[in-house]
Design a protein around this nucleic acid. Structure first.
Lengths: 250, 250
DNA sequence: CGCACGGCTATTGTATACATAAAGCATACA
DNA sequence: TGTATGCTTTATGTATACAATAGCCGTGCG
């Protein structure tokens, strides 16, 4: 019934896209196997036309792969693919931070970012960090990264960063929930927040190289999280899109 | 009649996509104005279903922009947008070069790149450089960049670079033809080729930082070309997708 | 027993008809 | 005369019917 509230005022294409994305990320659709349009029509409730539109969009999003003979299949990702995707995002965010630093940002524009920083500080003050706090962190962290990206004031760059962040495991907050189960969790958040603080400082002082470097390092922290979460197999289920990850044993 | 040879064995969707892209890049469809699907049906010869598929793909490609109320319009690009897109590509290619250097590349894998380098050397030996040579350079240069990108052996990165290079003015060889009319043309090609030489050397010696830096600088050369070509208004028509560039006077 | 060829089935790609919503225009009122 | 409202027209979004192709299974031959 929660599903039905989007029935009106949202296009069938979007509905199908959301439904199919859920099925892919949850593992209901297995990597490597062809997606049946007819089956998708049944599960999404939309007709074939919007379903096919959704499939094309999901391909561009990176979750699907076109089959030469026609149709699409769910893509599978190696651990290396995922860490590369994260580093890719970090590189782009680094470029955004450098642009912001080099081109200059007014105090007024920096204000929302600083507020976001303060809100995360507030969150991290409580020890130990609750699950709710982790969840709130995810939201604030996503906001921080979005604000930072916009500071570049470069539409092409913003667009590319959005596309690079579309994959759930490449998004800035992708592994935060997964790391919540780790013993190192609190330290990692504190270090990440320090990166946030440094990038703002660098941008304020127009230190482009420093701003870029810290955002790259920030992404490396996410790569470290990924490794930790994959090794600590007790909480593997918190990993986003776990079903898409191809392990060496497969 | 040359058009008819793709009639068979190529999907209507691809046909429509190619036709519409041509119309966009040639300026037949003006930036800012809504694309009429019915009109597109007439000009492409495909029916509305493949036309709409093509429109979605062209949006993802970056040439179109979705209109909130429905449909698509041709995007317009500022000079800043274009230079940022080039720098974006350079940053990604820098990452690819660094990956190649850090992760190591066998002599066997480097061979095609070196052959490409030698072929360009051969081309630049003749002075002054003919128009045919420029055209050959475009092909070889595109090949060099493609080979380099693949050396990263990172599918996510390759994918992103391909997407970043999809915009005609952001592609590695985008401004080569435009610069052919410039007096500085020959020097620019020689400098560019030097960059090619350096990146191979850096990868061979596993100097990641150097490989990355030179590819970034390489892209800055393209940015310089862009500036030169835009200022030297006598050969503006050689610029790719000139119709999409919004000038300050507009 | 294995491989290849042919027919059948199921799925994709395309075309078109329909419904809904947006945009433009005309008219009426302030 | 300008603005607002309602109607008309046209465009987009969706559903469905059709055609062509790819994959699969069974049978026959080597």
């Amino acid at each position: 019934m929660a599903e039905r509230e989007v029935d009106r005022s949202v296009s069938q294409t979007v509905k199908a896209q959301l439904a199919l994305r859920d099925q892919i990320l949850s593992g209901a659709l297995r990597p490597g196997e062809r997606i049946s349009e007819l089956q998708a029509v049944e599960t999404t409730g939309a007709s074939r036309t919007p379903v096919r539109m959704a499939l094309v969009r999901l391909e561009e999003e990176g979750l699907l792969e076109a089959i030469p003979s026609g149709g699409f299949m769910v893509k599978a990702f190696s651990e290396r693919d995922i860490s590369d995707s994260i580093e890719l995002r970090g590189t782009l965010e680094g470029l955004a931070a450098r642009f912001a630093a080099e081109r200059g940002v007014s105090a007024r524009e920096l204000e929302p970012l600083k507020e976001c920083l303060a809100a995360i500080d507030e969150l991290l003050r409580q020890v130990p960090i609750s699950v709710d706090a982790f969840s709130a962190y995810v939201t604030l962290n996503a906001r921080f990264h979005a604000l930072l990206t916009e500071l570049s004031r470069s539409p092409p760059l913003i667009r590319q960063i959005d596309r690079a962040s579309a994959l759930p495991f490449a998004s800035p907050s992708g592994f935060v929930m997964a790391q919540s189960a780790l013993p190192e969790a609190q330290q990692i958040l504190i270090i990440g927040q320090e990166h946030h603080r440094v990038v703002i400082d660098a941008i304020e002082n127009r230190e482009g190289a420093r701003a870029e470097a810290i955002m790259r390092e920030h992404a490396r922290l996410a790569v470290r999280n990924l490794r930790l979460a994959l090794r600590n197999r007790t909480h593997l289920d918190l990993l986003p899109a776990l079903a898409l990850i191809k392990t060496a044993t497969d």
